[in-house]
Design a protein around this nucleic acid. Sequence first.
DNA 1: AAATTAGACTAACAAACGTTAGTTTTGTGA
DNA 2: TCACAAAACTAACGTTTGTTAGTCTAATTT
Lengths: 189, 189
Amino acid sequence: MKTATRKDEIIAAASSLFKEKGYSAVSMRDIAQEMGIKAASLYNHISGKQEILSTLVLFLAKEFTRGMHSVMISERSPLDKIRDIIELHIDITVNHSEALAALNNDWMHLEDQDLSDFVKMREDYEENFRTIVKEGIKAGDLKPRHPEVILFSILSTLRTLYLWYQKRGKLDVNILKKDMVAVLLKGIV
Amino acid sequence: MKTATRKDEIIAAASSLFKEKGYSAVSMRDIAQEMGIKAASLYNHISGKQEILSTLVLFLAKEFTRGMHSVMISERSPLDKIRDIIELHIDITVNHSEALAALNNDWMHLEDQDLSDFVKMREDYEENFRTIVKEGIKAGDLKPRHPEVILFSILSTLRTLYLWYQKRGKLDVNILKKDMVAVLLKGIV
DNA sequence: AAATTAGACTAACAAACGTTAGTTTTGTGA
DNA sequence: TCACAAAACTAACGTTTGTTAGTCTAATTT
């Protein structure tokens, strides 16, 4: 557990502001004020506003990519893989709830290589998920519904979880996982 | 069916840009360019950027509020009311898919009275939904799960539907409703 | 034909933006 | 105590921002 550098502190402060107002509505002066310093001082630690965003977003994108990869190479059933993906999202949400807003809402403000890297990772992630869903249907694990609707309903719930997790007073992670898996897989009626 | 005024055209152009980059990242010059005119000309039709946002967001918020109200006063079962709410979201998504991005992501840039009006409507909407879910559980219509988790999983799926609706080539509305109700209520396994 | 109006235009404004340059302060190790 | 590096500062830059004022044009109304 290495100590947080000044750069990490800036990124954390920025995350919090991005979550409230979005990347474009947050100025370097806002971030500096949150840190108790002047805007120009930020440049002793980071190269610019864009670096804050890309550090934030690409870190999380890689986290999801890595998680999906280990699910893919596991020998578990399609249904269990979906359970694992749900838990992956919950784990990342619990550990990085501030930064997830930027991942979801501000990725389009990335530039050049960072943007195309991100889009690639996101597309691959969805494609892998889609494959698992299709395998689940073929194997009879899942009901024979349109894979796209299943994929969408699970993914949009998981992607917006960060919005609720904080508001509802940080529920216990294991209870959350249990409830979430139950509702998403078995429905409510 | 009254014809679209120039103001309506501006709001439509702005919606499309807001959806792509968010309210703060879109300039009046961007909107003007989309219309093929100069930024200053926009002010012959609207009072400012803020009016575009509030027109957009409050219109939709009222649409949801009105829809929820007619569901509430109906004499249907809690389960049927939830079905109706799902269909309400799908109808609004199909008819206003561009504007929904601003509702979801840019409402916090509203000012003063508009902001507090919006927040009130949104809170009331969620509270009404929550009440229906609780009644459904009490009546035995729904499984006895935590109402908050049910509410969250349905609502976050419905709220992000606009993102998928366009990407997946505008599916048929009735099929979409059927699939959606099935997946959200009965689960996938 | 004259008058009115809707809707575009150019030019400019003050404020806020991200960022740079150069300087001063602060804390650490020799 | 001195030297050095880390990290703050002030001041300013060129751009972009939302918006206003005033003007011109083309269509519609009288």
